[in-house]
Design a protein around this nucleic acid. Structure first.
Lengths: 142, 142
DNA sequence: TGACGAAAAGTGCACATGCACGCATTTAGA
DNA sequence: TCTAAATGCGTGCATGTGCACTTTTCGTCA
């Protein structure tokens, strides 16, 4: 998939890169049973556990309803446990199950391979700078 | 959607930015009848018309089958015409219809508003630099 | 305490994304 | 020339994405 001549649309530029990066990382994740999005959900959840739907969605820069959809296969496969929070019936308490933790740990190895492969080609410092600029782009588009 | 502390995954960083930028541009495109992806398909097609499926997909850094799916609503609504190419029955000849051209022209105004709004917040030169880095990221992930 | 607005989350819909698989056509080689 | 490989596309499936709408629950205030 060779890019065309000089994309001038910022939105298209980011989406194209997202498609290509996603393919690379998902290729590395093949065999772990996780998609790229699912890996990021589990990874982030493991850091802020227990989390609510809204909190985890904000952390992932993801729409609340999108996270709701994305949790379906994870809950179905027993990787994430969804419980009603204490004191407020409206709130969900999201946690990793033991299976979720072990799956995440195994997938982390595969993720690291993709991460390192990309950064060898793109540059470690350049990748860090790119991530910072992307974070700034998120702010600019908010 | 406030981003969490320092995303270290390049894939997640790009995907988060893609989600946020897409929301901004689609908000601007609301009323034109086009989604962000559809706008980019029409815009690119207008530059390389007539194009084949594979050619247009490569230009958009998009999987061939994804473009096939994405063309469905555009063809259904009469914005893109798909014909069999001369000399090779396997090849499709993609063209914008008159409706497609006028819709693209109208949507271009809306796109420009989003583009300028983003670049006012993010910086014009910084946006150009970001697009260049994203193009390099696509190469690195290929 | 009862009604009403706010907050948290779920659901249906349409489109986005790409892999696996299959079909039709073309080309290359024996 | 006839057949096998290569080429160009389409389709089914599962997931990703977010808007509009709904449901449930909580807090507030008269």
């Amino acid at each position: 998939m060779r890019p065309g001549p000089d994309v001038i649309c910022n939105c298209l530029a980011v989406r194209q890169a997202a498609r290509q990066l996603t393919q690379m990382y998902e290729n590395a994740l093949a065999g772990t049973g996780l998609r790229a999005t699912q890996f990021s959900v589990l990874a982030r959840l493991s850091q802020i556990e227990p989390a609510t739907m809204q909190t985890l969605a904000e952390e992932l820069v993801m729409d609340r309803t999108t996270l709701s959809h994305n949790l379906k296969p994870l809950e179905r496969d027993g990787l994430v446990a969804v419980a009603v929070a204490d004191g407020d019936q409206r709130v969900r308490q999201l946690r990793l199950t033991k299976t979720g933790m072990s799956t995440l740990k195994a997938a982390h190895q595969a993720w690291l391979r993709a991460q390192q492969k990309f950064e060898r080609a793109f540059g470690v410092d350049e990748a860090a700078a790119l991530r910072r600029e992307l974070a700034r782009a998120i702010t600019a588009a908010s």
